[in-house]
Design a protein around this nucleic acid. Structure first.
Lengths: 222, 222
DNA sequence: CAGCATCCGCTTTGATACTG
DNA sequence: CAGTATCAAAGCGGATGCTG
């Protein structure tokens, strides 16, 4: 936790959550809290185990993360975000929005986790016809299963299987995202290894979100 | 530029702007671009000069910053944000919003720069009576001068002196912010070293922004 | 002086091994 | 499972030197 020692709100924020891995730990907790230590470690490939332990102590001391000793039956602790930690969601969403265009060229070296898809999906896609009855799509990639539901104009991803999915898509992450955003048509995606099960027409419900923000030229207004 | 090697939008964003100092370099450019190397160095107390040079190269390569060789008269280069870099503004604003509550206890060790105040001011304060004629307040702290103008419901801070300020406030940063947000009354602030010049009644124009966000409990929706 | 590059001592990181 | 211990390598901050 090295401080920038600058009397500036942005610098103070970075003093707390700017260290390497910190924001990704928050990402994991946002996506699947409450979390055991091992769950976090699985969701953060590449982190050294001692670093994860140290970061969790730091974030706990700063009031971002809370550690609860689980009740007697289980001999383990679970981690959650405090309300203060929850407020980091806006930052994470903006980071995800800014980083989404960098996902075009999937590096073979990159680690993949299905639940990470929840970030771009809710940002990149919306419901084209909110009046129609709700729709559920199940995405399977590797061992991860996530469900995408829509019906109110927005798209809600969550971890876990759907009860009665209208459609099940199985395949590598970038194919799933490509099909949802409409950048890839089904024929191409199937040729690339996508498997579908159910009513593929429900994909028409999804519409890509406008990608670009205005990005005003004026320095720091609004 | 060490990569997390995770196929995730947030991780990809952090691969580019997550390294130490990077976001503060973007802050400086947002606040006062175009910028010479030396201007950046002044606005980033604590950075090693070689690191600043290296980071600027990195950010240029990533398409966030552009370097322009100035026309013949001046023998220096100026740095700007590219449009892609401008889009980081949303992230910086969210960071500033989250970090603002950490500014309560000013550390004597902290470096201060007047223009950093522009961040919390536009986030924390709004115009109480937009119908009234516009108002300009000049803030002086150390060697920095910033002007705060309002008149349309929002508050617009910018660097430099005001033409016809209704009020000039001189003093340490936390007093200036305290008076603007209404957390400090004038009598207390004057006792703490604030100097005022002009019509102090215009301070009634400012109203603190609602501080808290809802911070929903659901993981990553909206 | 502006705009770096080099060197040096220190800290942080990441990989691995080990423990209750 | 949930960490701690160890260690080589990389990164960082500070000082200094070089070039126009």
């Amino acid at each position: 936790m090295r401080s920038y020692k600058q009397f500036c709100a942005i610098a103070k924020a970075l003093d707390v959550i700017g260290d390497r891995w910190n924001l990704l730990i928050v990402r994991e907790l946002l996506l699947q809290q409450p979390c055991r230590y091992t769950d976090l470690h699985k969701g953060l490939p590449g982190i050294a185990t001692n670093l994860l332990a140290e970061r969790l102590r730091d974030l706990e001391r700063e009031g971002v993360v809370s550690r609860e000793e689980a009740p007697p039956p289980i001999a383990t602790a679970v981690f959650r975000l405090t309300p203060r930690g929850q407020e980091l969601k806006a930052i994470l969403l903006e980071l995800g929005r800014w980083g989404a265009p960098l996902m075009t060229e999937p590096d073979e070296q990159d680690a993949r986790r299905g639940h990470w898809l929840a970030v771009p999906i809710s940002l990149l896609v919306s419901d084209r016809t909110p009046d129609q009855p709700p729709v559920a799509i199940e995405l399977r990639t590797g061992e991860d299963v996530i469900t995408v539901e829509t019906g109110d104009g927005k798209v809600h991803p969550r971890l876990g299987a759907a009860e009665k999915p209208d459609l099940v898509l199985t395949g590598p992450p970038q194919l799933l995202v490509g099909v949802l955003t409409g950048q890839l048509n089904l024929t191409t995606a199937r040729a690339g290894g996508l498997q579908t099960q159910g009513n593929a027409k429900v994909l028409r419900r999804f519409r890509p979100e406008p990608a670009e923000l205005p990005g005003g030229a004026e320095p720091l207004d609004e």
